[in-house]
Amino acid sequence: MSSRINTIMMENSDVIIKNWLEIVSEKRKNDYTSSISEELFQSTNREFVNVIFKSLDQEGLTKELEDFSERLVNLGWPLSYLTDGLQTFRRVAIDFILSQGEQIDTDYFSRILDKVDSWVDPIINKLVNEYSGSWEHTVSLQRVALQELSAPLIPVMRDITIMPLIGTIDTERAKLIMENLLDGVIKHNAEVVLIDITGVPVVDTMVAHHIIQAAEAVRLIGATCILVGIRPEIAQTIVNLGIDLGKFPTKSSLRKGFEKALELTDREIVRHEDRNQMIEDIMESLEKE
């Protein structure tokens, strides 16, 4: 029985492929593949069903099907394209075998189902595992990249560093901010750190608590923390929440914060005109002597 089903499938592969392509093409009208060019869609389908038949012939997941699925993953095609295609192939194969004119009884139908399932299910399971592994690897790489960018500490001048924060701050990210902040202050021998929250959309009690903790930790290792980028709505929220930010300087903009940092490190901004005037005064004083 099993060999007869194999023979029917292989000898009628062209008809089964044609039926499969018709169903998949019809379903395309209602899914994401409608945005893909007709030429690419049809060529991908033909390749897909051919590698399926090769897997059936070799009774397992072939290198061709593995390469095909990996390429689709890299191109951004969802797993549902592969699993839906295999489920459609299951239905087409069963319908075709049942149409071959033999008397259909429960035992015969059950054996057909078992045989086709033994073809399709291992392939689906293997593809899901392969796809999940690739996805988890991609997500892991993205998470590492985001962590590296989520709390950078930038030395902008001797003794002065800036940490610009963008996006939502949760507990995990707050821990990363604290670690980068303390390591960076020591590494760059910074006296002043500006934490810029211009890009933080919401400052609630939890976010403020994390910022206060970070500023206090910076103070304990001998540096000063200045919180900059406090917009009016954030200032109002902080007041309404009763949060005390009086332990360290706060400024509305990065420019004002940087001016404060210069002051704390015994520097000042001298305008070009003022500098020229100062030089002239010094020269005039020397001439009088």
Rank of each mutant, 00 (worst) to 15 (best):
I221C: 08
P201A: 12
G184S: 14
D196S: 15
V192D: 12
A214R: 02
V192K: 07
I230H: 10
A235M: 07
I226T: 04
V228G: 05
T205L: 00
I238P: 01
L194W: 11
H188I: 05
P232C: 06
A215W: 10
D204G: 01
V193R: 06
M206Y: 08
Q213V: 06
A217H: 08
V185M: 15
T205E: 01
Q236T: 11
I238H: 03
E191V: 09
R231C: 03
P232I: 03
V200T: 09
G184R: 04
M206A: 09
V200H: 05
E233M: 13
D196N: 15
A235K: 11
H209L: 01
V193F: 10
L194N: 11
I226G: 07
I221R: 10
V203T: 04
G199F: 03
H209I: 00
T198S: 14
E216G: 06
C225K: 05
D196F: 13
E191C: 08
H209R: 13
G199L: 04
G229E: 11
N189G: 15
E233D: 15
V185R: 14
L227R: 01
A235P: 05
R231M: 07
H188G: 07
L227V: 07
I234R: 06
V228N: 06
A217Y: 13
V202A: 02
Q213C: 05
I195D: 07
H188R: 13
R219T: 05
H188W: 15
L220E: 07
K187A: 15
T205M: 03
H210N: 01
L220G: 11
G222C: 13
E216K: 15
L227F: 05
V185F: 14
I197K: 06
A217R: 12
I195H: 12
A217Q: 13
G229P: 03
H209K: 15
I197T: 04
H209Q: 15
T237E: 04
P201F: 13
A235W: 02
G184C: 10
I234Q: 12
V193Y: 09
D204V: 00
D204Y: 00
A217P: 08
A214C: 13
E216H: 14
L194D: 09
D204M: 01
V239R: 06
V202I: 15
N189H: 14
V207F: 00
P201S: 11
V207I: 10
R219E: 11
E191F: 09
E216L: 08
A214N: 09
Q213A: 12
V218F: 07
A223V: 09
L220C: 12
V207A: 01
V202Y: 09
P232A: 13
V228F: 03
A235S: 13
V203N: 06
L227M: 05
L227T: 07
L227C: 02
R231E: 06
M206L: 11
Q236V: 03
